[in-house]
């Protein structure tokens, strides 16, 4: 670090600044104001938190396609628990309910993965279907406005910032984070070095659950209602965090991935908001976001000619 730090910071800031500059130039009245920036900053936290959770699983080289279903089911269980237990400090119950459900569901993911010994992508597709069905049987999450203070500023920012700090510390400064990095780097070397790989993978899933719990708590606070989705359509909730994660990976060489993910989400939200303010039709937004992502990842990826890329 040390010496190259200013240069790195500069490189990291190029992407968001460039995107901001482009839209500001195109829409100086609509896009530039402080309020827009403030709102985009708030909006970037929600997908980032899921992406930080995802990061612990994907750093291990594993996939979790069930995170959308987990967020939905946790929010529904948490909300209904809160409504049943009565109000007052309801959001504490909500937080506990969401968190506990998400962690338990990720525990299920990890256990099934470790027990059945089949690829994580398959395990999580199968379990996603089951979680969706379960959510549909429990019903909707409808959170009263009084209980959703964490859906608005400044509380959502406080919660998001706290999650950022926790994610940063867990990923970079703890043994669990180090071990996840080691297993992700090379499972065989880590195993030979005495790392208990199954335990580490379990930890990765559980940490993912922790952040999904926070994400579901903030999601239901923000939107007020979460309605179950079935037939694998909960996977649509996976894509926003995944996009930020991709950019985080692309920026990995110059920036810590946890921060890179947040920058990635911020950039994506800027692109989308910019297009909304310019009146670009939604369908073109999808095309442009996809191309933008490909371009960022493509430029950042510099694999050697004979490197194995799957």
């Amino acid at each position: 670090m040390g010496k190259g730090l200013p240069r790195k910071i500069l490189i990291v800031l190029i992407l968001p600044c460039a995107v901001y500059a482009i839209f500001f130039a195109l829409q100086p009245k609509r896009f530039g104001n402080l309020q827009t920036l403030y709102i985009m900053f708030q909006q970037a936290f929600l997908p980032s938190i899921s992406a930080w959770g995802l990061c612990f699983v994907m750093s291990l080289g594993l996939y979790d396609l069930s995170i959308g279903a987990i967020i939905i089911l946790s929010a529904i269980v948490g909300t209904n628990l809160t409504l049943a237990l009565g109000t007052g400090v309801g959001y504490i119950w909500l937080f506990i309910g969401c968190l506990a459900t998400a962690v338990v569901l990720e525990l299920v993911n990890a256990t099934v993965y470790n027990l059945l010994k089949i690829p994580s992508m398959i395990v999580t597709i199968g379990l996603m279907i089951l979680y969706e069905t379960a959510a549909n049987f429990v019903g909707d999450a409808v959170l009263p406005y009084e209980l959703s203070i964490f859906g608005r500023a400044p509380y959502n920012i406080i919660a998001g910032a706290a999650a950022l700090v926790v994610a940063y510390i867990l990923y970079n400064r703890t043994q669990i984070g180090m071990q996840i990095g080691a297993v992700g780097g090379s499972e065989i070397i880590a195993r030979n070095a005495g790392v208990r790989v199954e335990r580490v993978k379990m930890n990765g899933f559980l940490l993912c659950g922790l952040f999904l719990g926070i994400a579901s708590f903030l999601s239901v606070s923000y939107g007020g209602v979460i309605i179950p989705s079935t037939r694998m359509s909960s996977i649509l909730r996976l894509f926003p965090p995944l996009m930020g994660y991709f950019i985080g990976i692309a920026l990995k060489k110059v920036c810590n991935i946890i921060i890179g993910i947040f920058i990635g989400e911020m950039v994506i939200i800027m692109v989308v908001t910019g297009m909304v303010t310019m009146g670009v039709p939604t369908t073109y937004q999808q095309v442009i976001t996809g191309l933008f992502l490909l371009a960022v990842v493509g430029i950042a990826t510099k694999a050697k000619t004979d490197e194995v890329v799957k």
């Binding site: 369908t283 976001t289 490909l294 990842v297």
Partner: peptide
């Protein structure tokens, strides 16, 4: 995945 998005649009 990115191509999936672009093509859906």
């Amino acid at each position: 995945l990115c191509v999936l998005f672009v093509l859906r649009g």
